[in-house]
Design a protein around this nucleic acid. Structure first.
Lengths: 202, 202, 202, 202
DNA sequence: GATGAATGAGTGTTCATTCAT
DNA sequence: GATGAATGAACACTCATTCAT
């Protein structure tokens, strides 16, 4: 990766963000500095600031990239499934899967979550992402509900509930999940989710 | 708080930790330095290092304090209730209440969570805390199950589920809860929790 | 001013110097960088270095421009007045006027003065300018003296004296002149100048 | 100067300011950095910031020191002279002397003047100093006027005039004075000053 | 117990400048 | 003529920490 010259912004920017991401995984939020990223990439620190005016910009760049990857990977997984019943099953299976929880390195993910407490623009980006996902579920649930695949009174609250459970699961995996396999407890969460969605609890 | 002198370690240490906590709320993890804490307390930075050999020690000190406060506040709330049915109700009501989610400043809480990804000792402390709480729920659920207050097949998994939902709720409150009152969605979570616990889903 | 392209050096160079001057007024000597000038002009920083090989060149360019403007504005003001007595009066009135003291932004002016202490080429330019002006006064004074408009023994020293007073006035305006209007004290200086020039003191 | 340890602020601060002053003379305002000062003093850059919280503070520290030196040296020179007539002569002789113009390195002096255009606190300090000196002259002139040593109508304006001439002289010395000895022209200024003060011009 | 002197590594950022296109 | 990639030096400043008092 080092030594390449005269590339343009279109190529360099994601390259730098990728390097940032890698260093972030290894060093954590506080341990990640522009010069460390530069060293990792084999380029001069100034070059990073040449592309991203400052560190804030760099951070937001990575968060935006992360979110857009999340959205994209999501679309790829579900949108081509035309059978509603199958789409519902796939949706639930995916949400409570290990792979889904590892779309983004959990350390990095949590770091950004944490930053959202202090940084309004990070907070907005994440809120937007979660709302986007919640609203996606909401609209799906309307379809599933109409067709009897699920039975809920309030599709929006149901979507909220699933998001809550999904995030709780990621959390749980970190603190309690190390003693037993992730799948075991994810199964419990999924079973509970289905029970709630199919028994008109919400 | 400033200017008091000649106190001993037993008094000073928690005083410093309290100051640390306050600065943490205002400045965040990365914005909190020993000298800022010292300024906040009106003492000399070196004094903090005199009591806590280094910053790591200081951080662990605060985390331990936070966790012990969590445990203590918890014990105070439930243990004196002798009627099992009432204790169950109180337990569930408390867990899904706004006050409970604010026992510790959520920014600080999340900061420590985040640190647990990079710092084994922080991770261990939190894991211990969550396991402790989960096990508390587990033992309670055995009682409630035996007496028919709840109906579950696996009390440990049920406890896991409640912890998951609880943490998901705190998370949800931050990212999605700003558009509607916390209580509204907490109600949904509670209702779902009861449904799961009382219908032998887990 | 932004966005115009394909102009040639004859037009671009003064345009850039004008932008430099504006940024200098707003940001001061230390606060003025090539990239700020470029931003102000809406062009790329490299373009400035394309026209002026380096920053030193740019600075000297502006100083030369400033001095030539000073000389030009000066010539415009007096040279057309043919009546000697009237020219003398106009000369003195002008030199001790507020407008005269503001021919160049005083902050910029002082900045260049200051630089002349460390930069020989700046120093030479300014020295040249002051000598040029002093010599102009000198030759005028010879005429005025000969015709009895003033009475001095040494026209060169008299010219020196007027320059000194003129610069002292600009200085005074900055540090002491804010409590009363410039004109009030300029009047005192003018009166004193006339007294010196017309009573064979020098 | 290097290597001395465990000195206290009372000693170190002026030592650092002295080093700052030396570097300022050699390198100029823009060329003077904290690390250069540290290198000059043989200490660690951080130590400078330990004593002076930031560069602004350092600069103000030096300016204040400079001004207080100016005031002190002034007091030492005149205040012990009890004979009014002699004090007046000494005062005028001193003000228009070479030594007086070199109390502070003129490059440094001008640098601070220049900064006063952009920095309110520098401006205030200098304004204060000039007002202080002007007011000193004012009160002296009242005495001299009363006793017939000078003849002026307005002592304050007369004081203003002397300050103006004094500063103009320093200026003149830099730009025009290099071709002939300072004293020659200073004599002209002094002579003019006396003429103005003793002929009821102001 | 408490303070201050001193260090050294490290941070993000700015800047002038060069080179290739 | 104009732009952008890339560099490297420098800067003020923060930080945790050590040591002596």
């Amino acid at each position: 990766m080092a030594g390449r010259k005269n590339q343009n912004a279109e190529l360099r920017k994601p390259e730098i963000l990728e390097g940032y991401y890698r260093v972030l995984i290894e060093e954590g939020l506080e341990g990640t500095s522009i010069s460390k990223i530069a060293k990792h990439l084999g380029i001069h620190p100034s070059l990073i600031l040449h592309y991203f005016k400052n560190k804030d910009n760099l951070r937001l760049g990575l968060i935006e990239l992360t979110i857009s990857k999340f959205k994209a990977s999501h679309l790829l997984k579900f949108d081509h499934i035309e059978d509603h019943s199958l789409r519902f099953t796939t949706l639930i299976d995916t949400i409570f899967s290990y792979e889904w929880s590892r779309t983004v390195d959990p350390g990095v993910h949590f770091g950004f979550y944490y930053q959202s407490f202090r940084d309004a623009s990070v907070s907005n980006l994440f809120r937007e992402m979660f709302q986007w996902f919640r609203d996606y579920l909401y609209e799906e649930f309307i379809i599933y509900n109409r067709e009897g695949i699920i039975q809920v009174n309030d599709e929006l609250k149901a979507a909220d509930f699933i998001v809550t459970l999904m995030e709780g699961l990621e959390f749980h995996a970190h603190f309690l999940g190390q003693e037993k396999p992730f799948e075991e407890f994810a199964g419990v969460a999924k079973k509970s989710a289905l029970s709630i969605l199919q028994n008109r609890i919400i």
